[in-house]
Amino acid sequence: MVRLRGVWEFVTASAGKAHITGCLAVTLLTAGCQLRAEEAQTPAKKLVSTAAALTSAALPAGAAPVPDSLRLTPVPALAAVPDTLRQAIEQLHAALGPAAATLRPEVLEQACVGYLTLHPTGRIERAGLLAVADMDLPNTAERLWVIDLQEAKVLHRSLVAHGEGSGHLRARRFSNQESSACTSLGFYRTAGTYDGIHGYSRRIEGLDKNQNANAFDRYVVLHAADYVSPQYVRQYGHLGYSRGCPALPPEQFKAIIATLRVGSMLLVSGPGLASRWLDGPAAGRRFLQRGWR
């Protein structure tokens, strides 16, 4: 309650009654994932400094040290991934080049294993393509990648927002609950597009029963948001927040949504990810049969 009172006093003082009325109207009238009213901002200079330190945590050894409390959460190694597949994933990561420098190999392995396990089931129809978001990275980092597996090429790399219920610079809490305003971890299938309160958007279906199965009903979708931009980061030191949607930069969202057409796979990774699709042996068998096709 103390924090909420502080937020209210700040917004009232800085924005005025007209702004408050507008923000409340948007909040009350929109459903699903929506643009939230901005909460009180820490001084931008301090936040930019903190964001820079957090971003450095995603860099290889030799980068500037950060406090232990800000270090990225280690990603557990997947069990029983065959050496042949593990080596192929390592080669893929190397071939992706500088565009994937901050894509952690362990997270890429999660995405590849999930793709290879899901595709034969028919839940993912789009072959040779995957998208992965590492929500453990700070939201000031470009932490979404769309990858062409057969060409070993990063097609898109961008900023992506997490839900306001998940945390500030980094997402630390994840939920599948309707009113949580949190990001949900797990594997998703992209569905159809529509024009909604955020304009052109693409729906996504959660494929992990205990982690993201409510995403479709929650209207967790891919959409553009003006709070997902380098300009916003420069002003506030962090991105704004969605109601759980992986919101995208206005300059990139159309191209990303177009690439991730119906039946593509998206992995939203983060601490606590658990999925039946992280099946190393099944992925290994599929890779031996058909490679990335």
Rank of each mutant, 00 (worst) to 15 (best):
R71W: 06
R71I: 01
R71L: 14
T73P: 01
T73W: 12
P74R: 03
V75Q: 05
V75N: 08
V75R: 09
P76Q: 08
P76T: 11
A77C: 01
L78P: 09
A79S: 14
A79Y: 00
V81K: 02
P82C: 09
L85F: 04
Q87A: 14
Q87D: 14
Q87W: 00
A88G: 09
A88R: 13
I89W: 06
I89K: 04
I89P: 01
I89T: 07
Q91A: 15
L92M: 12
H93T: 02
A95H: 11
L96R: 10
L96T: 12
G97Q: 12
P98T: 09
A99C: 03
A100T: 10
T102C: 06
T102S: 11
L103I: 02
E106T: 11
V107Y: 07
L108I: 06
E109W: 00
E109N: 01
Q110L: 12
G114W: 00
Y115Q: 07
L116T: 04
L116Y: 03
T117L: 00
T117M: 00
L118T: 00
L118H: 04
H119M: 12
T121Q: 13
G122V: 05
I124T: 07
I124S: 05
E125G: 15
R126D: 07
A127V: 11
G128Y: 12
G128S: 02
G128T: 04
A131E: 08
V132D: 11
A133M: 14
A133E: 12
A133C: 14
D134A: 03
D134E: 10
M135D: 01
L137R: 14
L137Q: 15
L137G: 00
N139P: 03
T140V: 14
A141V: 12
